[in-house]
Nucleic acid binder design. Structure first.
Lengths: 333, 333
DNA sequence: CTGTTAGCGCATTCAA
DNA sequence: TTGAATGCGCTAACAG
């Protein structure tokens, strides 16, 4: 790889001048600019971003810490972030937290050590206190998919409570009164909020929450299956089920079919997230929209605006989910 | 952030010594090592990886260029790579190519400029010639999911031909004789290979390939739907359909249902890839396994072995796909 | 508008 | 075993 020295030599100018035409930092006469450009071309010169970042103390790259790199949720989160950042000429550096407190900290340290200009967090294991403490750190950061009080301006989040309300209200309006609920891990914020929404909607209709038709799952397919089996085992009466995410809804579907029941005739099912394959299921899954890709984009724009001063697109920090009606849930018969 | 200077000052040793304890590069007396370690701890010192990489000309990070960051295929490819690399203490830097020749080149340049020690490519638009030319570049690289002749040692790939054979043979053995085929974009290697396998299996059974029951799609859901509609429109006779990937199979399913037909009774359907949600479909999709996650891991191990000299796990460079029998395809009635 | 001069934080010779 | 000196490739004052 050619270096800036060789370019400056070939162009017959100084180091600084080459640097200037690269960064458009200050005026350079068209003539010398041409010479430099020609030399760069000739040498197939590509600046060493590592050196740039060491010298300039900024890297044009933003660190992104997510729980996983795969899966419908993280995948679309990550690509939303990446696209928006790339569009603005910034780079993304990813680290994976695996929903583990230690790994999340390791990831943050890794990103910091890479001279990132800012950080985007999707943290599950780290506490609010930890996040609040980061507030005083040098690096600006934004949190996706979580609303930490005291850090409102740094959060891009979804109204999970409303999501829970929407799902339940929909079923209520369809005439259902006995609605089972399979929640996510309740020690995570969003799972608790979605459940709270469910209870709120129930209360609106004067229906008491019945713990006997509620099971706590772990957001994975298998757990939806198991939870559904448990529900059937309890011999409790219910005509509809809400799953706190689509993954579990898929597992629940299997259990429902095994039971010889069909949807939505015998039982109505509603999911949450509206993952890409929700409309491919049979019956097509009625679910609550979770605009993760958009939230990812917004997190990226937040950084673009607050760190790089690029503010050419609107930023929305709070999202209201809506129910997406398809086939898996219908009127109570 | 504390620097190495502050650590050396606090510990009362030289720069070089601090560097030595960090890298275990040469013997340091236990005593001074302890002093340095203590100082690092006290200052919460984290080495600046950017500076390390500039000084040492190696970054402990490997560049990964993939077509997309989301979706069942890329997601699991990417996380396979990331996990394996992280396990060995190496870092991953991602760039996205979007199946576009220019963007793929940009991505490569980005990765090179980040001082990556090696590159992992999942390229779709770039030609074999381009790849062959890279052979002479300074950076070692490995190609996933593609077999380029002349670069065999640098490729981790799937026997797509065999995949096509397996899918078709399975249907043939079930008694089907008129098997429609919805292919991927034929200018991409794997799509052509899968189709070639299909033809091979047909030939084995002495059945001529009928272009009238074959449509070229683009690997996306919608295209499976459209292709299936076309097939029905042609009024051609067929009792089974193979889709060159699961995405299109899902689209085809929709079209088949709209036609009032059911699977596998009226028509048998086989996909390709065995994506995570294939078993969630109804009927559960019979498909051909595509071990992308494993291939990602192998690419990472290739780098670990050939670039970093870490060779603690077996490496497999060529994968043989197998049919995964579920419910969407059955005996011809 | 252009060149000179210092570093950025660290690894790595070479001596001691 | 340890320290001093040099440079990785580039940016950023400061002069000119």
């Amino acid at each position: 790889m050619a270096t800036i020295y060789e370019v400056s030599k070939l162009a017959g100018v100084s180091l600084a001048t080459v640097s200037r035409v690269m960064n458009n930092s200050s005026r350079v006469s068209p003539k010398t600019r041409q010479k430099v450009l020609a030399a760069m071309q000739k040498l197939d010169y590509h600046p060493n971003t590592i050196a740039q970042s060491l010298a300039s103390k900024r890297s044009n790259s933003v660190g992104v810490l997510v729980s996983e790199l795969h899966g419908p949720i993280f995948g679309s989160l990550v690509s939303g972030i990446e696209e928006e950042l790339t569009r603005a000429g910034k780079f993304s550096i990813f680290a994976v937290g695996h929903s583990d407190g230690e790994k999340e900290k390791d990831g943050i340290n890794f990103l910091i050590s890479r001279n990132c200009d800012a950080l985007i967090f999707h943290l599950e294991a780290s506490s609010d206190e930890f996040l609040l403490a980061q507030k005083n750190s040098a690096l600006p950061f934004v949190i996706v998919n979580r609303l930490v009080s005291g850090l409102e301006e740094n959060c891009i989040s979804l109204n999970n409570v409303k999501g829970g309300i929407e799902a339940t209200r929909f079923l209520l309006k369809q005439g259902h009164r006995d609605i089972a609920y399979i929640s996510g891990p309740l020690h995570w914020g969003d799972a608790g909020q979605r459940l709270a929404g469910h209870k709120t909607a129930l209360a609106e209709f004067g229906i008491p929450f019945d713990p006997n038709i509620m099971v706590e799952g772990d957001y994975l397919v298998q757990s939806g299956y198991v939870a559904m089996k448990q529900l059937f085992g309890r011999k409790a009466k219910f005509t509809a089920v809400i799953c706190a995410n689509d993954e579990m809804a898929v597992g629940a579907m299997d259990a429902i079919r095994e039971q010889g029941l069909s949807m939505p005739e015998d039982i109505s099912l509603v999911g949450f997230d509206n993952v890409r394959w929700a409309p491919f299921l049979s019956p097509k899954l009625t679910t609550v929209n979770n605009p993760v890709n958009e939230m990812g984009r917004m997190a990226a724009r937040w950084v673009l605006k607050n760190v790089y001063g690029i503010n050419d697109r609107p930023i929305q920090t709070f999202f209201e989910p809506e129910i997406v009606v398809r086939e898996s849930a219908g009127a109570r018969v």
